[in-house]
Amino acid sequence: MRPTREVGIYGYGAYIPRYIIENRDIADLWGRDATPIKSKSFPSYDEDTITIAYEAALRAIESSGADPSLIGAVFIGSESKPYAVKPSGTVVAEALGLGRNILSADYEFACKAGTEAMQTVFGLVSSGMIRMGLAIGADTAQGRPGDELEYTAAAGGAAYIISRVEDGVLARLEASYTYVSDTPDFWRRSLEEYPRHLYRFTGEPAYFHHIMSSVKGLFEEYGYSPSDFKYAVFHQPNYKFPTRVAKKLGFTMDQIKPGLVVALVGNTYSGSSLLGLAATLDVAEPGDKILLASFGSGAGSDSMVFEVTDLIEERRMRPPVSKLISRMIPGDYATYAMFRDILRR
């Protein structure tokens, strides 16, 4: 997909809560040996998807100097909306001091809701319906105690201000692509507290099939190959999947390393690939091409190609993702359980 009028990223911001829990602590509790990652973030008792979305968006606005009054849409992709019915975006818009004439909706497509929000804003900006728009992916993902997901389901998010290229962007969108099918690898029924998943079925027919179809489709339609890219970012539910899909598609470790934050941060679901893109933009130079490929269970993948511009230097997020990570402190399982409301007072 290519918008009629050229669009891109005007500014970006990310946020990760302050606490991490070591996978080792979870594994010891449940008597398991292998751990998928080293640690994962978890939200403090006073954080949720709305506050994380706010933090990420605020950082995007402050770091880029975008004029909040030009923002015409706030779309938040999340699978952990604080309310089942009631938009998250209106709270975020009000808190950011945006105008009242804004489009806003919560998007849900498992872990791909964030890139879904981006695709929507690309279209709205390109069509001229809005001047700028905020696409946010944020989650405080839930993992049932003892379940595989408990090791990775993390909290964090990233926000992207999308504008037309002529308004000055730090990365120009060259092309995007999408691939979806009815593939039930993971879900959460209405009113259920925790999601369910089909173990190894989440791999080959779900994650790998959809990302590879999406990226290959993009490459075929627009004539790209892995060597065109300085960096690539894949959805990161764990450490193994993104590294393996990169290899299968012909990318090297060097290309994916800057955006691979999962080992310490965990899977931030709708925020995952967007957080990886933010970490990559933190180090990208003008002229670099970046591939972004999300994955959402159910299932689908959006892939996008960005080319970084000269504006990157002045618009980089302050502080960078690496600083957000280095400030994190470990919490024990009891703290995790209390803050996640697993332990209820």
Binding site: Y45, E47, I50, T51, Y54, E55, A95, R327
Partner: peptide, 25 residues
Amino acid sequence: ATLRKLYTYGEDGKIIYGVKFRPVL
């Protein structure tokens, strides 16, 4: 200043957000 949850009106009630202060990132 940042935005955080202050309190809720119970399990089925509104979640109230407001300004809190945290260390500069």
